[in-house]
Design a protein around this nucleic acid. Structure first.
Length: 747
DNA sequence: GAACTCAGCTTTTTT
DNA sequence: AGCTGAGTTC
């Protein structure tokens, strides 16, 4: 019997939630209480009761969680489970927008999705064009204001209006409003949407068009939302619109794990669910299956210091477990060293590397940890941080693909117009921008038209390269159907000269870039395999919305390093919560604001509850921040944990200087002396020019970037001599170089 | 145009 | 400390 399988091993509360299929349902699920399991089983149960998979919509926080849930449901109920709409809010919105936004007249369906840095680049352009001072109008600040407004469903016009009516508002906000209006205008012009637009415009679409709303309301008879405590106004409104017709809405979350206030998440969405849906059934899941009693007690103790919360106590039948381990190291290097040391002993206790996670509050902390791992030769993976899709070479190839897919995308065009170098400099780009602004044409239209290039007063050389570039892009547009997506990616990389540039300039950095591009081709292959009929546009859409976390592969035995935020929803047998210092965790920016401080404490709660068996809490007495040594007090969160739960050296602050310490403790506090420079970040190989070598016509030279060539002309002598070199690679051609400055060698 | 130097800023967390 | 952007030089 299928239903037996669904209910097998569930506790009474969980059964209740899985069994309640109709009407609004709120599942308050404490950390580790089997929340994912309930969601999965509930989906399976809906299917078992004859609900069609395409009538179910389930929203999760990451694509990874979505896929996992899909597989689990499929193993319970069979393949039809794969037809459930299971995705993140953002992918869901992208999908319905592709399908229907064009019919509402709001946007075209072929829009590009800009990530944070693309949209910041656009804001920066606008600030420049408005002749505003970049010191006062910091692009990132303006961006976050606009983002906050969008997350609250405040469009540009309403944002501007709300300021005009308020005479006290500063000039700053008025300017932000102007930038916001212009930003929207250019996003339309570029045929692009940012992450916030996906939500905002999807809501507008459903509000504006009854037919479309009706269609999706009919389609999604049953809606499930995970991590409901982290929804923002736009997501809340979207949920409300979709569920309005039937109220078959199940939301799952834990107010104590709400840690995304900074991006507009509103904890009240979950707290007032019962007010929004008075007929709602509420199920509390308080039995924890994940952690030992020790860990859970520590978590409960910390979170109980938050005043603004509904009291709740997680409990477990699990074993008492080991006491937590706390240590304070001398500095962040010693902290990392000590962690490495602990991991070695964990290995002797039969823990695998992949059983272990290191959590930190800020990405910057990963550096010291990474160094220690490299030195120790210990396998690790950094989840998040400088993400794969944020690497320069990956953004470059994506920009090429986006431009080919959407010739109006001027942001992508400017990114790669001179990558690899084509002799198109700032002056030329400024002229083009000017001309584009005056003629209201997309940049690409201008560079593909020689007439216009002349009118824009582009010098002959630049004109030539621009035109060649335009021809190349046009050619790619026309020929894209000759290739599969991975082949096309390779074609673009080769034919643009991008690969040549990387291959000719052999540095560790470039080798890493080539490797990353290879990985990108693999992503394309995977996509092509999973979506045989997928177009370039679908591929772009796919990669715009997958996060690093989605790629966390479990098969490799490596220690995971990530921020507390990235760790949400994950669990590990052993967890190290690092950098537990006042000013860092809780972060300095939260100290003035009790709401922010409570959010920090929830982050600490999330961190602690990731651990199943063993929990380590660590901090450093001094830490160098911005290149300066800083003394930090131990985090208050440590002092909120009852003493009896903690083993080992605590309350040792201030740490005595090494000379005052009994010798047997020294190694505990201080990293062993290590050769300086034993770790080096990949640096560009500097090609030192051969100063002191005399050159003459006909000599052969090797250039760091452009390969080999022949000297055509020599002007002057010694270090200051100017050489004219014809490079063998015809696409590079003739270059004038100063001996003393150019990366060249005589061969 | 390319490559260098210097000043100033960075670090909160992310789809 | 390490990165970006502005300014400078040839």
């Amino acid at each position: 019997m299928i239903t037996d399988k669904i209910f097998e091993g569930l506790n009474d509360r969980q059964r209740e939630a899985v069994n309640c299929l109709e009407g609004p349902l709120l599942v308050m699920a404490g950390a580790g209480s089997g929340k994912t399991r309930v969601l999965t089983c509930r989906i399976a149960n809906l299917l078992a009761n004859g609900v069609k998979p395409w009538n179910i919509l389930a929203i999760t926080f990451t694509n990874k969680a979505a896929n996992e849930m899909k597989s689990r449901a499929a193993s319970m109920i069979g393949e039809p489970a794969r037809n459930v709409w299971l995705s993140t809010f953002h992918s869901f919105c992208a999908r319905i927008l592709r399908a229907d936004v064009e019919s509402t007249g709001l946007r075209r369906s072929s829009f590009a999705i800009y990530d944070t840095s693309d949209s910041r680049a656009l804001i920066k352009n606008i600030i420049k064009d408005f002749n505003l001072d970049e010191k006062r109008f910091i692009p990132a600040v303006v961006q976050s204001k606009i983002s906050a407004a969008k997350n609250m469903l405040v469009g540009a016009q309403r944002f501007a209006d709300s300021i005009n009516f308020d005479s006290d508002r500063s000039l700053f906000d008025q300017k932000v409003a102007e930038i916001y209006l212009e930003y929207d205008r250019r996003m339309v012009e570029n045929n692009a949407m940012d992450f916030d637009d996906l939500l905002l415009i999807a809501v507008r679409m459903l509000e504006k068009n009854e037919d479309v709303l009706d269609k999706y309301q009919r389609r999604f008879q049953y809606i499930l939302i995970d991590e409901y405590q982290d929804t923002n106004v736009a997501q809340y409104r979207l949920t409300q619109l979709l569920a309005a017709a039937h109220h078959n809405l199940c939301v799952v979350g834990d107010a104590d794990q709400s840690i995304y206030r900074f991006r507009g998440a509103d904890i009240h969405n979950i707290l007032s669910f019962e007010r929004d849906y008075p007929e709602a059934k509420v199920v509390l899941l308080e039995e924890n299956y994940r952690s030992t009693k020790m860990i859970l007690d520590a978590a409960n103790a910390v979170i109980s210091n938050n005043d603004n919360r509904k009291p709740k106590k997680l409990w477990t039948r699990n074993a008492l477990g080991d006491r937590l381990t706390f240590f304070e190291a001398l500095n962040e290097r010693a902290e990392a060293q000590q962690i490495v040391h602990e991991i070695k002993s964990l290995r002797e206790q039969n823990f695998a590397y992949k059983d272990i996670a290191l959590l930190y509050r800020t990405n910057a902390q990963s550096r010291a940890l990474e160094e220690a791992f490299l030195n120790a030769g210990m396998p690790y993976v950094i989840v998040g941080g400088l993400k794969f899709y944020e690497r320069r070479e990956i953004k470059d190839i994506i920009a090429y693909l986006r431009l080919i897919n959407n010739l109006q995308d001027s942001i992508s065009l400017t990114r790669i117009i001179n990558v690899p170098r084509r002799g198109i400099g700032q002056t030329t780009i400024a002229k083009l921008d000017q001309f584009a602004a005056n003629s209201e044409l997309p940049l690409f239209d201008i560079i593909s038209d020689v007439e216009m290039l002349i009118r824009a007063h582009i010098p002959a050389k630049a004109k030539q390269s621009l035109y060649q570039f335009a021809v190349f892009i046009h050619d790619c547009v026309e020929r894209q159907n000759e290739f599969s997506i991975p082949e096309f990616v390779l074609h673009v990389l080769e034919a643009s000269g991008y690969m040549t540039e990387l291959r000719d300039n052999v540095t560790t950095e470039n080798e890493a870039r080539l490797e990353n591009l290879g990985e990108f081709v693999n992503v394309a292959k995977e996509f092509a395999r999973d979506n045989p009929s997928g177009a370039l546009e679908d591929f772009l859409n796919h990669i715009a919305l997958i996060s690093d976390l989605d790629n966390l592969k479990e098969e490799e035995d490596r220690v995971s390093l990530m921020t507390v935020h990235s760790a949400k929803g994950l669990e590990f047998p052993v967890v190290f919560v690092t950098g537990l210092e006042e000013g860092l965790f809780p972060h300095a920016s939260s100290m003035m604001d009790s709401d922010a401080l409570e959010e920090e404490r929830r982050a600490a709660y999330v961190a602690i509850t990731r651990a199943q068996k063993k929990l380590y809490l660590t901090c450093a007495t001094t830490r160098s921040t911005f290149g300066k040594e800083q003394m930090n007090a131990r985090s208050r969160f440590i002092d909120e944990i009852p003493l009896e739960l903690i083993a080992s050296a605590r309350r040792t602050r201030p740490t005595p200087p090494p000379s005052m310490m009994p010798r047997r403790f020294q190694s505990f506090y201080e990293a062993p002396a290590q050769p300086k420079k034993s770790f080096q970040m990949p640096v560009k190989n500097k090609f030192m020019p051969d100063v002191g070598v005399e050159w003459s016509t006909g000599d052969r030279a090797r250039h760091g970037k452009w390969g080999e060539g022949t000297v055509l002309k020599v002007q002057g002598a010694g270090a200051n001599a100017q050489l004219t070199i014809v490079f063998d690679d015809a696409s590079i051609g003739k270059k004038n170089l100063i001996v003393q400055y150019a990366p060249i060698k005589k061969i």
